[in-house]
């Protein structure tokens, strides 16, 4: 009867470890991304979060060459903020810093556990899933392995930031799956929220200066 206490101990440890975990997931809505814009003296900081579905049209890990190419070109495009969000000429803005990346928002616990236990197997499994991509599979899959999100950060320097009274969102032409951006703007007059949609891809910032 020796193994039993050990097993018991193991399960207790496992239970304790499980209880210590925190589980949380960000809200994720396809078609809707977030853009935060902060004005501080001559600098403008922008941060974009957009679901993978908006940018490349899929949210599984890119496996095929075609998918990889899509992700790469999207990241390259996202790294050029002035092509996506066109600011008035008068503001004379230049990009100081721009970075874009694809984050996979893994459903924490289960997913990570799998990783820890058997990384290789998990990958294979994921691969299989996508090879035969039926609807059912997809539903099960998206439940299991979370969503992906593109994340980009920009820092602009503008000669006359107050001239940024309007921003035109070429973003929607660049990414045909994107429908809406929830925009938060903060300037010296305070914070404000806007919604910019595909139908009206213009942000009016006249009230913010």
């Amino acid at each position: 009867m020796k193994p039993l206490p050990l097993a018991l101990l193991m399960s207790l440890i496992a239970a304790a470890a499980y209880a210590g975990e925190t589980r949380q997931l960000d809200a994720h809505e396809h078609g809707v991304g977030q853009l935060d814009i902060a004005f501080e003296s001559s600098q403008i900081a922008m941060e974009l979060h957009a679901p993978g579905a908006d940018i490349v049209g899929f949210e599984y890990a890119a496996e095929s060459a075609g998918d990889r190419a899509k992700v790469d070109s999207a990241v390259a495009l996202l790294a050029r903020p002035l092509d996506l969000f066109s600011l008035p000429e008068a503001a004379k803005c230049t990009v100081v810093q721009a970075s874009a990346e694809l984050e996979s928002e893994a459903a924490h616990d289960k997913h990570e556990e799998n990783h820890a236990h058997d990384d290789h197997k998990h990958d294979e499994h994921a691969h299989e899933d996508h090879a035969e991509h039926t609807d059912e599979d997809h539903a099960a899959h998206s439940e299991k392995s979370g969503h992906t999100e593109f994340h980009a950060e920009y820092l602009l320097n503008c000669a006359d930031p107050a001239a940024v009274s309007v921003i035109e969102f070429a973003y929607f032409t660049a990414f045909p799956n994107a429908l809406e951006l929830e925009v938060q703007v903060i300037s010296n007059t305070g914070a404000s929220a806007f919604e910019v949609t595909r139908d009206a891809p213009v942000l009016d910032l006249r009230g913010m200066f």
């Binding site: 902060a38 501080e40 600098q43 820092l155 938060q184 903060i186 300037s187 010296n188």
Partner: peptide, 20 residues
């Protein structure tokens, strides 16, 4: 300290693991 950090801080707090 700087308005440029507001959104970063907001996100960090909203994703704070130890407490919701």
């Amino acid at each position: 300290k700087s308005r440029l950090q507001v959104f970063g801080l907001q996100r960090a707090i909203n994703e704070y693991q130890q407490e919701p």
